[in-house]
């Protein structure tokens, strides 16, 4: 392929030489025409070079490579010395700022949490205090109440004892009355039926009978 290309380049060169030769002929006809001819020759020469692919025109390769190398060297120098470190520092600064802000936010959040905990603790303390007061009051009232109940109980007990004593007295007197009545009635009955009974015998009989009843 390269040999073919060289052949093509050679033919192109011959062609432009021809054109140049014609331009020289034209030069003989006058200065104006010569200038004109030279321009035309140059234009035609460019045309001849362009008839193939400009990419394979090896005569322009050193030029392109030279300017490419120059451009790349400048670009690399600018990028590696100025632009890239600058962007890297900006990005890391931003990262740092974001991290710092996040940490500050975390700190504030922690503070808020602490405040909430303190509030909760105070609330719980107040509540327990109130409960303590309530319990103390309740105990005092209970004590008073207990004392009153005990007093009342004692009074009731005293009165019950007294009442029982009186009931017992009444019962005893009633029993004695009933015995007296029974003895009197028995003695009268014995006297009416004509018996002559000893007062002591009658008492004994009545007592023994009454004992059986009472039991």
């Amino acid at each position: 392929m390269i040999s073919l290309l060289q052949e093509a380049a050679n033919t192109a060169a011959e062609h432009s030489e021809d054109v140049a030769g014609r331009a020289v002929d034209a030069a003989a006809q006058g200065a104006d025409a010569a200038a004109h001819g030279a321009e035309a020759a140059a234009a035609q020469g460019a045309e001849a070079a362009s008839s193939g692919m400009p990419q394979l025109d090896f005569s322009t390769f050193p030029n392109q490579i030279f300017w490419l190398v120059v451009t790349m060297l400048i670009l690399y120098w600018v990028m590696s010395r100025i632009a890239l470190p600058r962007i890297a520092s900006v990005l890391s600064d931003r990262q740092g700022a974001i991290t710092g802000d996040l940490m500050a936010a975390e700190e504030f959040k922690q503070k808020a949490k602490d405040a909430e905990a303190a509030y909760d603790a105070a609330l719980a303390e107040a509540r327990s205090e109130a409960q303590k007061i309530v319990a103390a009051n309740k105990a005092e009232i209970q004590k008073v109440l207990d004392a009153a109940i005990a007093d009342a109980d004692a009074e009731i007990a005293a009165r019950t004892v007294e009442s029982e004593k009186r009931i017992g007295q009444i019962r005893d007197s009633a029993q004695a009355d009933a015995q007296t009545v029974a003895k009197d009635v028995t003695a009268e009955l014995v006297r009416i039926f004509g018996g002559n009974a000893d007062q002591a015998q009658i008492d004994g009989a009545v007592d023994s009978r009454l004992k059986g009843v009472r039991q």
Partner: peptide, 28 residues
């Protein structure tokens, strides 16, 4: 293919390795 031709920026001379051409211009 005309758009790909390498031309000198000034004048019509041959393209030497140092000639400022349209390649130079566009790389700049």
């Amino acid at each position: 293919m005309e758009q790909f031709i390498v031309k000198p920026l000034f004048g019509d001379g041959p393209v030497q390795w140092y000639t400022p051409t349209n390649v130079t211009l566009w790389m700049g």
